Simulated scan of single mutants.
Amino acid sequence: MKKLLTMVAAGFVAMSLMATTASADAAKGQKIYSKKLKKACGFNGAKFAATHSQDEWEEIKESGKFADEIKKICPNANVDKLQKYLDDLYDFAYEYANDSGNVPAC
C-alpha cells in the first residue's frame, strides 16, 4: 500500500512539473518575440500572434513552414538567427492566437 501511495504521489509531482514546463515555453517565446522580433516586425506580440487561429498556427507548424510564415508576417526579421527559438515562438503564437482569448503583455 505504501508503495502504491508513493507511486501516486510521484505521478502527481511529475504531472505538475509538465504543466509548468508547457506554460514556460509560451512565456519564453513571448520574451524572445519582445527581444528579437518586435523591432523587426514593427508591432507588438498580440498583433503577431493574432494573425492566425490556433488551428492555423498548428497547421503551419506541422507543415514545416513556421519560419516562412514569420518571414511573411515580418519581412525585416532575420529568421536564420531564430532557428533555435522556433518552438518557443510557436508556443507563444499558439497560446495567444486570435481565437484563444488570451492577450500577451508585450
Rank of each mutant, 00 (worst) to 15 (best):
Lys2Cys: 04
Lys2Gly: 13
Lys3Cys: 02
Leu5Thr: 02
Leu5Gly: 10
Met7Lys: 07
Val8Leu: 01
Ala9Trp: 03
Gly11Arg: 00
Val13His: 10
Val13Trp: 08
Val13Arg: 08
Met15Val: 12
Met15Thr: 13
Leu17Asp: 04
Leu17Asn: 09
Met18Thr: 12
Met18Cys: 13
Ala19Leu: 12
Ala19Gly: 13
Ala22Lys: 05
Ala24His: 11
Asp25Met: 07
Ala27Lys: 13
Lys28Thr: 10
Gly29Lys: 06
Ile32Arg: 08
Ile32Phe: 10
Ile32Trp: 03
Ile32Ala: 11
Ser34Ala: 09
Leu37Trp: 09
Cys41Tyr: 05
Cys41Asp: 06
Ala49Arg: 11
Ala49Trp: 10
Ala50Gly: 08
Ala50His: 02
Thr51Ala: 01
Gln54Pro: 03
Glu56Cys: 11
Glu59Asp: 12
Lys61Tyr: 12
Glu62Lys: 15
Ser63His: 02
Phe66Asp: 06
Ala67Pro: 04
Asp68Leu: 03
Glu69Arg: 10
Ile70Asp: 01
Lys71Met: 04
Lys72Trp: 02
Ile73Ala: 07
Cys74Gly: 07
Cys74Glu: 13
Pro75Ile: 08
Asn76Lys: 14
Asn78Ser: 07
Asn78Gly: 11
Val79Lys: 14
Asp80Gly: 10
Lys81Phe: 00
Lys81His: 05
Lys81Tyr: 00
Leu82Cys: 11
Leu86Ser: 06
Asp88Ile: 05
Tyr90Ile: 13
Tyr90Gln: 11
Ala93Tyr: 03
Ala93Gln: 05
Tyr94Gly: 09
Tyr94Asp: 01
Glu95Pro: 03
Tyr96Ala: 08
Asn98Leu: 04
Asn98His: 00
Asp99Leu: 11
Ser100Ala: 00
Ala105Cys: 01
Ala105Trp: 08
Cys106Ile: 10
Cys106Phe: 06
